[in-house]
Amino acid sequence: MTTTTRGWARSPLLHYVLRRTGQALLVVLLVTVVVFLLLQALPGGPARGVLGQTATPEQIAAFNAANGFDDPLPQQYLAFLDRLLHGDLGTSYVMNMPVADAIGERLPKTLLLTVLSLVVAVAVALPLGVRQAARRNSAFDYSTTTLAVVLYSTPSFFLGLLLVIVFSQWLGVLPALAPQGQTVAEVLAEPKALVLPVLTGSLVAVATFSRYARSSTIDNLAEDYVRTARAKGTSERAVLRRHVVRNSLTPVIAMLGYQVPVVFGGALVVEQLFNYPGMGLLFWSSAQASDFPVLLGCVLVIAVATVAGSLLADLTQAAVDPRTRGGLR
């Protein structure tokens, strides 16, 4: 995407940080509106959900009056926002506990799984992408980029299933069930059971990241400073190591910030497939049970994380590369 150069592009970093942060807050506010409207769109409204299918119209009316659901929508929205700001995400219909507690219990486990997957993916994808770019159009480049497209096109549930069949059914070396511990420490106590979920989560990410690393490195290899370095007699290895890698991988690292929604989406499927008790599995079982407060609570948490991730990525980019401060990426 091209960045436009306008007047404010030359203004200092602080201006950019403030403007970009303001935008992020606005987006979060918009997301709360969407979630609020989704809550309103529920069949029968929240009353039906809490009181069940057998509730009489009188009971529903009493419930709505008691909980302020008869108030005008803008007033309800402000009350909803007020509760959110106090950390109140509502109460689960099914689990009879506050949504914030249910999410708080499972989020650390999801973070553990996703961070492990990302670390593995980055460790494999970045060197791979650089090597592909350095040996551009070689057999190695062709075969690995084609493999990356195939991996990218493979649904993670299918990939995970194949891994389970090979490693736990045929070879019998790894369990097909993720760790079932309630805390992060308990989960870490079963490292063998973590291997397949982490592998499934990271393989698809390897495909995406290596593509970015490859094209970013190729772009940088065409830059003038590379020609200068080569002209000065620097070896190709040193050009790559000392000059190109640092420049080409910074945007790729920053790009990780934009991957938050992808990562959570991946966790949803991996957790469901391996029965890993994280937020993704919570979301899936809540969808099965129509537990809307939990669903919308999760959506809010993920949306805030996504906005924060892309904000961080933009700010990192802006700090490292002043050219990007103008555009909205």
Binding site: L30, V31, V34, P261, F264, A287, V299, L328
Partner: peptide, 24 residues
């Protein structure tokens, strides 16, 4: 208009789709 796009991107499609599927 672009902040609306940002807000949309902030909610991963698969999650939104599951919410809609749970409604109907």
């Amino acid at each position: 208009m672009m902040r609306v796009v940002d807000a949309g991107i902030a909610i991963p499609a698969i999650f939104l789709l599951l919410v809609v599927s749970a409604i109907t």
